[in-house]
Simulated scan of single mutants.
Amino acid sequence: MASSSSTNKVILKLLIDTSTEKVLFAEASKDFIDFLFNLLGLPIGTVIRLLTKNHMVGCISKLYESIENLNDTYFLNPTHHKEVLLKPNAPISSFLQLPSSNDATSCGDKSGPLKLYMCPSRCSHNVTDVKNTVCPNIYCKQSMNVEVQYYVEKKATEVTHSGGKGGFVKGIVSYMVMDDLVVQPMSTISSITLLSKFHVKDVGALQEKVVEFGMEEGIKLLKASLVSKNVLTTVLLNNMGRTT
Rank of each mutant, 00 (worst) to 15 (best):
I60K: 10
I60E: 12
S61M: 09
S61W: 13
L63F: 14
L63G: 06
Y64E: 13
E68D: 13
E68Y: 06
E68V: 14
N69Q: 14
L70V: 15
N71F: 03
N71T: 07
D72M: 07
Y74W: 10
Y74L: 15
Y74G: 10
L76N: 12
L76D: 11
N77G: 03
P78G: 03
P78A: 05
P78C: 04
T79A: 10
H80R: 09
H80C: 06
H80F: 11
H81L: 11
L85V: 08
L86S: 03
L86V: 08
L86Y: 06
K87A: 12
K87S: 14
N89L: 11
P91T: 10
I92M: 11
Q97K: 09
S100V: 11
S100H: 00
S101A: 12
N102W: 01
A104S: 14
A104D: 12
T105S: 15
S106N: 11
S106A: 15
K110N: 12
K110L: 15
G112W: 01
L114C: 04
K115C: 09
Y117W: 04
Y117L: 03
S121K: 13
S121V: 05
S121M: 09
C123A: 09
V127C: 02
D129N: 12
D129E: 09
V130R: 03
T133S: 15
T133M: 07
C135K: 01
N137G: 01
N137W: 02
I138K: 14
S143K: 11
N145R: 01
V148E: 04
Y150N: 13
Y150E: 03
E153A: 12
E153K: 12
K155N: 10
K155W: 06
A156F: 11
A156V: 15
A156L: 13
T157H: 08
T157M: 06
